[in-house]
Amino acid sequence: MGEAVVHVLAALAAFLGLFVVFARNPFTCAFALVGLMVCLGGIYGLIGAHFVAALQVIVYAGAIMVLFVFAIMLMNLNEEESEYSWGHWRTYAALLLSAAVFLILGSGVNAWLSDTRKPSSGVWTFDHVREVGGNVVALSGQLFSKDYIQFEIISLLLLVASVAALILAKRKVD
């Protein structure tokens, strides 16, 4: 049953993704994106990655998209005026590019699905996760032992980014 729900959620996510691209109203786009994030969270949860699922919903749906929607509300964007012009070369370029990306991603997923040598060892298998006592333990073990340098570098990067954002905003105010 879980698998069926994953498929339903995936289809829903794809549908909402189309909405994000094609809806005229920026508010509709933003909320379709929120729905998409929640769907992704559901998929993560159903395939056993509860921690990632919770974080997906908390960070993307609960925090980032709130700021998006907030900005849209503040700027009072209405229905987008410009029509999609089918004659323009950019439209065809975009179509071509997205088709290429879709093909590459699809073939990658297909190769992974048809690969019978699914990882039976390593830290991310169900058995290992169950053995160490849950997603959080497995993830934090990995994060704070093997990958701690990367972890610290990323945190430094985020700190620098937030300071930079602050300085940019402050200069504008002054």
Partner: peptide, 25 residues
Amino acid sequence: QLDVGILAALAFAGLEVYPVMLSGW
């Protein structure tokens, strides 16, 4: 029975912002 129960509760509680924004807009 989630081993990330508190995060799941927070995730759903965090979605409580949306009805406010939706209804207001």
